[in-house]
Design a binder for these strands. Sequence first.
DNA 1: ATGAAAGCGCTAACAG
DNA 2: CTGTTAGCGCTTTCAT
Lengths: 348, 348
Amino acid sequence: MSKDRNRVPPDARPRATMREVARSAAVSLGTVSRVINNKQSVRAEVRARVQAAMANLGYVPDAVAQSMRTQATRSVGCMVSDVSNQLFSRAVSAAEGVLHRSAYTMILTNSQDSKEREIEILSLFRRRRVDGVICSVSREDDPEIVGLLGGLGLPVVLLERTMDLGVDAVATDHRSGAYQAASYLLTLGHRRIGLITVSQDALPGRERARGFEKAHGERKVPVDPALMAFHGFSADYGYRTAYEFLTSRHPPTALIAGANQMVGALKAVRALKLSIPRDLSLISFGDTDVTELFSPPLTCVRWDPAATGQMAAEVLLSRLDGTARKGPLRMALPAELVLRQSCAPSPG
Amino acid sequence: MSKDRNRVPPDARPRATMREVARSAAVSLGTVSRVINNKQSVRAEVRARVQAAMANLGYVPDAVAQSMRTQATRSVGCMVSDVSNQLFSRAVSAAEGVLHRSAYTMILTNSQDSKEREIEILSLFRRRRVDGVICSVSREDDPEIVGLLGGLGLPVVLLERTMDLGVDAVATDHRSGAYQAASYLLTLGHRRIGLITVSQDALPGRERARGFEKAHGERKVPVDPALMAFHGFSADYGYRTAYEFLTSRHPPTALIAGANQMVGALKAVRALKLSIPRDLSLISFGDTDVTELFSPPLTCVRWDPAATGQMAAEVLLSRLDGTARKGPLRMALPAELVLRQSCAPSPG
DNA sequence: ATGAAAGCGCTAACAG
DNA sequence: CTGTTAGCGCTTTCAT
């Protein structure tokens, strides 16, 4: 009893139902439903009476009951590894905005890139009967995850991922970004360029490696695998890796790193008292406050995370309302190289 | 017809219901329900049979129907001004983690600090029958918002906000943070300190102003209202305000600014070619990559946004399961001053 | 320990 | 144009 006090204020009357509205307005259930859903013909006078009754009773439609009846929840499941990542929070925020405008609700989950959690979350989406899913899985080739996504039997839009599943995907053109960055450094004469980026199990890491290799290939500059690091997302990983690179026997003269990892790399640079760009040229994947405010300001590959989220939501909505074109969509958003002051010709 | 192809894969059988499980296991609906909910006594043999049938049919409980029946949705509405704000994304992420562990789902919404959207979102939460709400409203004293929150008739936890509504609140001790920052600068001999922070309509802005004033009061140093700016959250506002302060007739010798606004302030500092800390001492509210990596590293007031989110979720859960103590909880999390190299004795 | 039956609040035929 | 009715899939008495 007393426990309930804190859960429901004492003055909380049970919410009004359609039935009460109908009685109060002296009409039938069906008519109330028609008014709620702006359906067909209801005489203006009756409509007004019903609306008055609703206002009077403080009636609010029960979305649960509506979903129960219509089999649609107007909710979208969103799964990312962690919203506290700038990259994701901007995409998620933009996606939420788009969905909200179309009266869809977003269920947000963090997978922490754990397969176990991903499986659990996908099953959660299923239990909750979400109408669609926007997600960024940790590994694109995991058969269990692929199976679960496909088994959902509803529209799925991948964010910065792709899969051979006939599913829509929205991603940045990281290959082009990496290609531009590497080409620029090669043009400056650099021959040993370090690359610190994310796992090869997902599109951004793979595409960046491809673009990086392509730029080297075109100039017939060999890529040293020892200078490519793909095994961590964190600033801490960036620190350790950059430190190792820079203290190795054949250190790179330039470094390309993800914005997150760059934070760590910059600490390594500071710890080693290197001067940028004299001792080392630097390019960041992703433009952040840090890249802009560091001394010197960092040259970077810039793209728009919010645009990916917005696009993902729009693609999903187009599936949901059936206006999408037939096959799976694969959208690539551009990345550009922003020249600042962290790169110089190779000393060699 | 063909439109449906993209919505539901052709092989998507309608999902199995309890009824089919019951038939397949040759038991009644009630028994299946008992198995699903781990209820009371069901003979082990029967339980196994039912579980086998569920697995066999790929049965997944329908959360919508469960909510319909139990009147609980196990979902929590979360409203912040914008998740793409670091501050909020960390809190939201932590809150989601806690809720998820207790099998609650988070519905995420961005209000953009627009009253109109806030009203709409609160009514959305009501329609969706969320079991509880975590939110950070734009104005704590808006009677309409207060009324709506109270009228929800369910547990609400305010994030970095307070209200006279008998509602729980979790916030950082910004007053202490600002007090420490201002005291430190005053001790260094500064007599004109600029303060750039957020609106006085919400707790963080108000508390920071109080702490700032208290530090001055204790030392009988007058506060110049012209050096207090409360009207923007953005980096851009930080830039404009800092620029004005620093080019005014009586410029401050020190500046305290929110992390967001500090990004702009640093650009102003750069544009004016000021040397830190020689020409100006700087303290940031909030520790970010920028504060740490700027040259020189910035002294800052540090707190833990994730802890606020986690705490808010825990408080909400304790309400939801009735274990919370009677009155409204008001939790204050600590803020500490982190000394780095952006402050020096006042030249005066 | 299990079964039968009554709805939760709503929408969508179908009648009239 | 409006009323009646049959469930959506589940939980929960109440019997047995």
